[in-house]
Amino acid sequence: MSATLSAPVGARSRRGGLARLNPLTPAALLLLLGASVSFVLDVAALVGLHAWLLVVLAAGLRAGPAELLRAHLTFAPFALGVLMTNAVSRPGRVLAEVGPLLVTDDGVRVGAALALRVLVVAVPAVVVARRSDATRLVVALVQHCRVRPRAGFAVLTAHRMLAEMPQRWRLLLSSARSRAPLDRRGRPRIGARGYARAALALLVGGIRRGNHVADALDVRGIGAPVRTSRRQEPFRRTDGVVAAVVVVGALLAALGARLMGG
């Protein structure tokens, strides 16, 4: 959890490969990956694709084995859940009986593909997100995607708030704990009500701060129709080359694995 949450601060020192790209390039590639993978149910192709993506992450973004392993483990329970439910809830040739449940070959095949899909999409997203700079991304969105500056600044505000949110959440929970009644073993019990209260406090505090920020933005004329920007995020030739290499490699890996896997 906190590995991905605290990342924007820690990632600064090893942003490496992404620093030379327009921040929209990796974002667009991730979107493309998510969209295209949605139509793939072939286990071999997904394995090939995933292998290629790991190579890209390791070589291009210098993601170490420990980081990649952690990213996989984060999503493993979810992937496993998808696999298990699908294995016992689909028609097909019966492979095994587990109590009242029938494990079918179709179920296992589709479940494995869906579980793999989770990893294929999520692991690169986490690794890229840890290396991304939110300010650069917003500037690029304003310059290339016609996002209005006011909206861009609102999003940046939100991003800053998000970075502090786990800390505020922990603070609210510990204050709830200090007020909560003790259970039999002497530990404070927050209960569902306590969590609900903390969530509401998080929301109310956020809205209040949002109001202050909005007034501050207005005072500084952020909503003015014409603005110039000190920062520039142009597309360079590197962006095109990187995108082409990643996409062509992904296609070759997926097709190759599919042919080899039969």
Binding site: A158, M165, W169, G210, A214
Partner: peptide, 27 residues
């Protein structure tokens, strides 16, 4: 108004975070 805009975004972010807490519970 800027306040509306920031409010909608703040709501989005706060719920994004709370959804994520929900995801942990759900996993």
């Amino acid at each position: 108004r800027t306040r509306d805009l920031v409010l909608v975004v703040v709501l989005g972010v706060t719920f994004g975070f709370l959804y994520w807490v929900l995801v942990q519970a759900w996993v």
